[in-house]
Design a protein around this nucleic acid. Structure first.
Lengths: 356, 356
DNA sequence: CTGTTAGCGCGTTCAG
DNA sequence: CTGAACGCGCTAACAG
């Protein structure tokens, strides 16, 4: 009925004068095959333009050679870099990538089944909170390989995690602000449930404590990883004349809000007030003034997640926690006055790059 | 050997007291099944948390229910919007999405075989020049469903295309510049092979002709869809004191280059010279001054491509050419002085949005 | 080193 | 309206 003229492994076998098993061995580089036979088979393959049927080999081998990516959103700027890292690593390892975005639809436990699972992938990369804890636990109990990106494992599981050194980065940033001479340093916190945000606040607090600076609750406000939210908070601060030397926003988007709010209230950045962020998003070097921030290696995070997942699939083992190092990027919004700095992991942009 | 505790269709059949054939009918909503039987089967399915094995059904049905996206790059800003449109449309139609980026490795005809094909997808969305003409022709001859995004079909094929109304958009922009009072309008062309760029230049020429303005070859330079290239061209123009009222860049990235070059040479935008772009990229509203541009509905392009591809797969028919309408977005870089404008398809940003 | 053969899980005839 | 039986294309034992 459906003989869609596909050339199958049998055609190749016939053409090469061997059995299908041998062809299979050549394709999968398994077992010992005479170089001579290999050559015959390969020339038959290319002569016939044979491509193995994925469905059939999945069925027979019980492995899809496909990795799935589940993400809450596809729209954020950093997603580009994340996806690039993941995609490259996936194909370098001869896997295939399936992508699914939940688009932040609240996936209650009983909600629609995840379109990605062991029926079509060998394992999943789960980004932040795209999959709820219960589902994660269930899959994990079933022994399904998964790696978590930017979220910790649900209680009771031991899923491998990949994320940034958020706390260290935040500490480094606050210390830089202190070195700039700032003392009253405000913090724009991220969304309540966000783990990156949480660790960054932790770092902020520790840095202040380490320098015997008080943590003033009035100086901690909502940034929500969101421009609008940050604007509101900062506008209120400044209208109320709260004494602030510098604002450390938990991410670059809220830093953008802080920048705009400051300008609209008539404060100059960095002369009247410093504003810094975290992430080094794509936009950040183009802001006015160019934003001092912590560069987070998001592409590397993607690559690392893939590497861990493949290791997990193939060996059953993976690093429980991978913390990726961050880097302080000094531009102009922090009020740093061209003093020399001896710290490692610090980048100054080339002049050409940041005077847009 | 490998009885990995998967629950199969047989388990469901047993639990529901029917045959596997009936379960299959229920799952695929085929044939006539008693409502009562349907209910029994479905409760068995959910009780056992049964999920059909993709490989098996692909093998049996010869359809993957998967769509592939091939793109030269994953890093451009507009790719976010494109991917969002594609991804949403794919899942709304109960398909699955496989993503592959060539990363602009020059794929010669004999190069590595495309990892996406009829062995793992039902059809492909091919973005710009990610797949060479020869391969495209071969796949097309084999009757493999494909839709082209932002490129025309290779000679000899009739592959459906989806792209923007580039020419119209460019005409509208040039006419706006003329309405602003500009006469000496320069054009920053895109890369040689790029079809969008080509049509935009066409529109530029036609608009000038329609207004009896001369097309001065000196005013057409390379922009290359690239900031650096555009900077070089514009810097030379301005240093040579070429008389220019306005620069129409073929895309927003080259417009950014024009903006920077103008500033560095000491011209004020828009007072001394106007600069406009095409695309309405993410950055454009944040530039100084906010960029007047043509908004291109990239997300819609993605959705449309998916719709066409699915139609092609299911019915064998599709629109040969879909041209998506563009929209003039007037901000501040064009020198428009708050005159009222009666044209349709024109957007003025809300004040809040563009005074960053 | 290579061939033979038995499924993998499911969709789809064809009888009943 | 339902069930039995076959085969999709391939891999993985097991022989030889």
């Amino acid at each position: 009925m459906n003989n869609r003229s596909r050339t199958t492994i049998a055609d190749v076998a016939r053409q090469a004068g061997v059995s299908t098993a041998t062809v299979s061995r050549v394709i999968n580089k398994m077992g010992n095959v005479t170089p001579d036979t290999i050559a015959r088979v390969q020339s038959a393959i290319s002569a016939l333009e044979y491509v193995p049927h994925t469905g059939a080999r999945v069925l027979a081998s019980n492995r899809t050679h496909t990795l799935g990516l589940v993400t809450p959103t596809i729209s954020d700027l950093f997603f580009i870099d994340l996806l690039r890292g993941i995609e490259q690593a996936v194909y370098e390892n001869d896997y295939t990538l399936l992508v699914y975005a939940t688009h932040e639809r609240p996936l209650d436990d009983t909600g629609p089944t995840l379109p990605l699972g062991r029926h079509n992938t060998d394992g999943l990369i789960v980004f932040t909170n795209s999959v709820d804890d219960e589902r994660l636990r269930k899959l994990h109990r079933g022994g399904f390989p998964m790696v978590l990106l930017h979220r910790s494992p649900p209680a009771g599981t031991t899923l491998p995690c990949v994320t940034f050194e958020n706390k260290n980065g935040a500490r480094q940033m606050v210390e830089h602000l202190i070195a700039c001479g700032h003392r009253r340093i405000a913090f724009l916190a991220g969304p309540a449930g966000n783990e990156d945000a949480c660790w960054r606040e932790q770092g902020y607090r520790e840095a202040l404590a380490a320098h015997h600076l008080p943590v003033d609750p009035l100086l901690i406000g909502q940034g929500g990883f969101n421009e609008g939210v940050a604007m509101t908070t900062v506008t209120l601060w400044l209208r109320d004349n709260v004494a602030i030397d510098a604002i450390f926003a938990a991410d670059d988007e809220s830093a953008r809000g802080a920048l705009r709010a400051s300008r609209e209230v008539g404060r100059r950045v960095p002369d009247d007030i410093a504003v810094v962020g975290f992430d080094d998003a794509l936009l950040s070097q183009y802001l006015t003034p160019p934003l001092t921030t912590i560069r987070a290696p998001i592409e590397l995070a993607g690559r690392t997640a893939v590497a861990q997942l493949i290791r997990l699939i193939q060996t059953g083992q993976a690093e429980a926690l991978t913390l990726l190092p961050t880097e302080l990027v000094i531009r102009q919004s922090c009020g740093w006055q061209n003093r020399s700095l001896k710290t490692s992991r610090v980048t100054h942009d080339q002049p050409l790059e940041d005077n847009s």
